[in-house]
Amino acid sequence: MILVFIEHSGPEVALWSRSVISAALEAKSAHGYRRAAGLLVGGKNAVLAAREASYYGLDQVYYIDTVQTASHPACVDAAVLRQVCLRLGVMLLLAGASSRAKSFMPRTAHMLGAGMVSEAVAFLPDGAFRRMMYAGSAYAEVEVLTKIKAATIQQSAFAAAPKLDAGCEVCCLDEACPAPLQEEIIACSSADDGRPELRDARVVVSGGRAFSNAGEFAAHVGALADCLGAAVGASRSAVDAGCAPNSAQVGQTGKVVSPDLYVALGISGAIQHLAGMHGAKTVVAVNSDPAAPVFEESDYYLVGDVCSVVPELCRELKSI
């Protein structure tokens, strides 16, 4: 059977986990598995989120509600998931490409003797997987040679599973939280800016090095984002320059987004940034350099200084 690790925030299933459910349903038919189940790990919200998760087309949803905090370290997920996989006889383990899953999935896979594919974008009919390499410049077909297999899923390649009228069975597992903990979270921060989550957003406005400081970045990228109800993204160089938090980074080493509309402001178009925006349906770019590589990767582009274009664009958008 296939097991999907479903992430949740409070009682809500994360949107990217619904893409992983879609991927699991595709793997079920393409790779010939009999069942696809989900697993949620957490405290009292796990049962609420599990009930919601049961409506997306899985055959069964399991939850563990004895892990007290939502912010438990990833080593807990790694160990719990191993126990559950052995108990249920899981042959394909799937999770999203969140920072948390990137931390625990390779560990769990190793503990199960499983080979793992990172950020799969397709399941091929002969049992192989497709994934991107070289900052999204190349697709690779990869074979997993182990009996048990594991993969994280590139969210942008699978639409979120739609909600059905009827749910599947929801079942509590009593796996114990393993002690001792190898890692302890002693502090955390959230860069929540009240805007849509970058990976899930329908519209993303991203800024690059054309902005000289964080204030200028916020005044332009933030303003256009708010005008369009968009999430804010940034190029690696804008993050390096301190213009935007790392959690906003779009690209090979940041987040991969798949919005309907991606607006690139003052972004030159380095290959490592393009890797994060390949999945956008439509790309609009503004840059003062007429030879900016980003224009090659755009559907519509305007040559101009972002600091003068953006305020005018916001006014125009409001007047339409």
Partner: peptide, 20 residues
Amino acid sequence: VRVRTRSMQLAGKQRKRIKV
């Protein structure tokens, strides 16, 4: 090895590239 790359393909999406 547990995972083997059997083939590769260059990726690329043709965008419209319309100048506004």
